[in-house]
Amino acid sequence: MSMVSNQNTRSATLLGLIAVIFWSTLPIVSIYTKGIPPFLCLSIAYFFAFIVHMIYWKYKYGSITLKFKQPLNYVLTYVIGIFSSNATFLIAMQHGDPVLSYLVSNLWPIFALFFAAFLFKEKLSNLHYIGAVIGFIGVIFISAKDGGMSMKGEVLFGFMMGFLNSVIWSFVSVINRKFSDIPADSVGLPLGIISILAFVTHIFVEGSTVISTQHLLAIMYLGIAPWGAAYTIWGYAVRFGDVKAVMLFGYLMPLLGVVWMILLGKAEFSMNVLISMILILVGASLGSIKLFLKNSK
């Protein structure tokens, strides 16, 4: 029984890595949505995410309305958490230096580890602390260029929004465990509500625009993968996997984001990037090595 449980824990933990891979494509996909107002983009993407979840509900439960009845605290937590997380991310990327903003938004695994320790009495080992520090240094290397960046004005505002984004998302990721009795695919309902909220926000604060086929395809991908399926996969991973290992997988996000940009010719490979890859991989693996050693016995 213990062996089966360990195997399930390992499988759930690895699902967290799949979600991270989906999310790592956000920087490169955002290039193909350039020119689309951010809240309109959010609205359409989450509409597709909601549709995908309804199709899944019909396949799994035989009903597309069964999941419309969810506990209010669950719905509010996800609507407020996901909406504010993505809003702060978009604002951060539009202000100041986008690399610096993206850097600080990817510090969320550090906050998540300590949120988990505080809220769920998760014990952190020395490996977790070391892995967090090494991963943080790796993220710093990715952002370092031209001797560093000054922080003032718009750059500072973008940094603050990115910092807020990392805190919000780390909390939402960890608080997932409070809802372990609710199926992870139930997140489809909050995503549908977010689509409506984003559209209302778009009407009041953004102007109209024309959406091309390329824009629509990119937004559809966002709704199906990083802003759709990834939330369900991530929810399952943090509930039934090793939450400390899952959070440290988050360090792979900026690493993979840079890799996608290099492969698609949007960034150049350098020794700086190579050093970052090594540090982030080491940092992420240190936090999860105990889990896999234990389960392999």
Rank of each mutant, 00 (worst) to 15 (best):
P71L: 03
Q94W: 00
Y56V: 02
F111G: 06
M93D: 00
T88P: 10
S125P: 00
L26T: 13
S30D: 11
Y102H: 02
F47H: 05
H53M: 09
L66H: 12
G135C: 12
L90I: 04
F120V: 09
L103G: 09
I110D: 14
Y56G: 05
D146F: 06
N126T: 08
L156R: 02
I137L: 15
S84G: 06
Y59M: 08
S30N: 15
F68H: 11
P27H: 00
T88V: 04
V99D: 08
G147A: 09
H95I: 01
P71F: 06
F159Y: 14
L103N: 02
F111T: 02
I55N: 07
Y78S: 11
S125T: 08
H53S: 13
I142Y: 07
C41W: 02
Y46N: 15
N86Y: 02
T88E: 07
G62S: 03
F157T: 14
F115T: 00
L100F: 07
I44T: 01
V155M: 01
F111Y: 15
A87S: 15
K58V: 05
I55R: 07
A116Q: 09
L26P: 00
W108E: 12
A112V: 01
V75L: 12
Q94M: 10
Q94Y: 06
L72V: 13
P27G: 07
S143V: 01
N86H: 10
L72F: 13
H95C: 02
Y46I: 02
M54I: 00
G135S: 12
L124D: 06
L119V: 07
A92N: 11
V133D: 11
A116E: 13
F47W: 02
Y59H: 06
G35N: 07
V139L: 07
F89S: 14
L119H: 02
F22M: 10
S125D: 04
S85I: 03
T25R: 01
G158R: 05
F136Q: 04
V139N: 04
D97V: 05
Y61A: 15
D146V: 01
W23E: 04
V104T: 11
T65E: 03
F50E: 03
P37M: 10
D146N: 15
G81E: 12
Y78I: 00
S84L: 14
E122V: 08
T65H: 11
K69T: 08
K67N: 12
L42Q: 10
L113S: 14
F136H: 05
W57K: 00
F136N: 07
L127G: 09
H95Q: 14
S125M: 05
A45Y: 02
I36T: 13
A116F: 05
T33H: 05
G35R: 05
M93Y: 01
S43T: 04
V75P: 08
K67L: 11
N86V: 05
W57L: 03
L103Q: 06
S85C: 12
F22N: 07
V139M: 08
I31W: 02
L90G: 05
L103R: 00
F159N: 01
F83M: 13
S101K: 03
L42N: 13
Q94K: 14
I28G: 13
L66Y: 14
P27Q: 03
I28P: 11
E122M: 00
I140L: 15
L66W: 10
D97P: 12
I44Q: 03
G138P: 10
A92R: 08
H95W: 05
S85D: 07
M54P: 04
V133C: 13
F159D: 05
L119T: 02
P109G: 06
